[in-house]
Simulated assay, not measured.
Amino acid sequence: MSQSGRVRPARRRAATAAVLLLGTLIVLAGCSAQQRDDWSRLALPEPATEETPLIGNLWVGAWVAAFAVGVLVWGLIIWAVIAYRRRDDELPKQTRFNIPIEFLYTVAPLFVIVPLFWFTADHQEKITELSDDPDVTIGVIGQQWSWTFNYMDEEAHDIGTINDRPTLYLPVGQTVRFDLMSPDVIHSFWIPAFYMKMDVIPGHPNAFQVTPDREGSYVGRCAELCGAYHQSMLFNVEVVSEQEYQDHIDALREAGQDTIIEPPIRGAYDDEVLDDENTGGDHE
């Protein structure tokens, strides 16, 4: 093949790459600011606490590192396919050992693993740090198959059932500590908009804290397969003003829910579960 014949495919490949890049830029330019913001979070929901940047940055950084490694590997594969493609029947030189290359692919992963490990450990320490005097303390009991929320500072509680999901009220702008406990199996307390979840383990209380900084309605769920009706372990979260929070506490007290519930409390749900099993109740 002539020199000009070899140049044309290279030019066509470059033109194709340029067209793809231009098309990508046009698509991105046509997106709204909100869509670009959603893409920048790489599938994470809109953040709702002061602590979310720690987790969000770690998530995005991990994806950036993964893409960088992927592009490098794909580039090397494509380069090897093109540069060492078969041209004739002569076999290429066979090399049994190549110490520099073996050293490279042994050491190179450390440049990826070490930064990821360091940032993960550093962020984890900050995320799980607890203050000695939080503004609000919520005792969370995860039981098969719902949640109980104790407002420890207010001496009030809210109990959910398998067919009646509870609603957790939190005051905006105040540090909230969650004390997690379970009387039966392992659950996982998860509010996606808070970017945080933690296991609820029998006999091993866990705790974490967040500071909600945006009023709104959110969803929470159990993120650990915990039995037959795991899908029923849903709850609502309302981040409200201080006045609305106090109004809710007053409503709980007026309804007679002016005590702190201590686990175990499984007996309160067994009869309902049996009734639903016998009548074919809907547990969604």
Rank of each mutant, 00 (worst) to 15 (best):
Q35I: 01
G70P: 06
A228N: 10
T24F: 15
G216K: 07
L116S: 06
L28T: 07
G280I: 04
V140W: 00
A29V: 08
Y218W: 04
A10D: 11
Q243E: 14
G281N: 09
N98T: 11
H187M: 12
N98M: 06
L180P: 03
A62I: 08
W118R: 06
L104D: 01
K197H: 13
E238Y: 06
F235Y: 02
L110C: 13
W74I: 08
L42T: 02
W74R: 08
R266L: 14
E154N: 11
R36C: 09
A15V: 07
K93I: 15
V219L: 13
A43K: 05
D199F: 07
D164K: 11
V176G: 00
I260A: 04
I162N: 02
A268D: 12
P205A: 08
T161P: 03
N98E: 12
A121F: 12
S32N: 00
E272F: 15
P264S: 10
C226I: 02
R86H: 09
W190Q: 11
T148F: 07
T120F: 14
T52I: 05
G267W: 04
D132T: 00
G256E: 07
Q35W: 10
I99R: 13
N163K: 08
T279L: 14
A29W: 09
Q246C: 14
I101D: 11
A207C: 11
V71C: 10
D132N: 02
A251I: 11
Y245N: 02
T259Q: 06
C226Q: 04
L170F: 07
F235I: 00
P53G: 03
Q94D: 14
P202N: 11
Q124T: 10
R41E: 04
E125M: 06
D164T: 05
A29I: 08
V240Y: 02
D250A: 15
R96Y: 03
P183E: 11
L22N: 09
I127H: 00
Y218F: 12
D135V: 00
I99T: 14
Q209D: 06
F103M: 14
Q94Y: 09
K93A: 15
V27N: 11
S232P: 04
Y151R: 01
A80L: 13
L25P: 03
D213Y: 07
V185P: 12
T279V: 14
M1E: 05
Y229M: 03
F194K: 03
L252Y: 06
F67H: 10
A121P: 12
F119Y: 12
R36A: 07
R11G: 15
V176Y: 01
E129M: 06
R36P: 12
V19W: 13
Q209S: 07
V210C: 02
L25H: 06
S217K: 11
A14T: 10
L104E: 08
Q3K: 12
S32H: 03
A62N: 03
D258I: 00
M181W: 05
I82S: 13
R86F: 12
E254W: 07
T167N: 05
S182E: 01
G160N: 01
P202W: 02
D135G: 00
E244K: 08
S146L: 02
E238R: 07
L54K: 01
T128H: 14
D199K: 09
V27F: 14
V210F: 00
R8Y: 14
E90G: 05
E215A: 14
F194Y: 03
M196A: 10
H187P: 12
P115S: 08
Y229K: 03
A10T: 15
V60D: 02
V176Q: 02
Q144S: 15
V64H: 05
P212D: 09
E125S: 13
E262I: 13
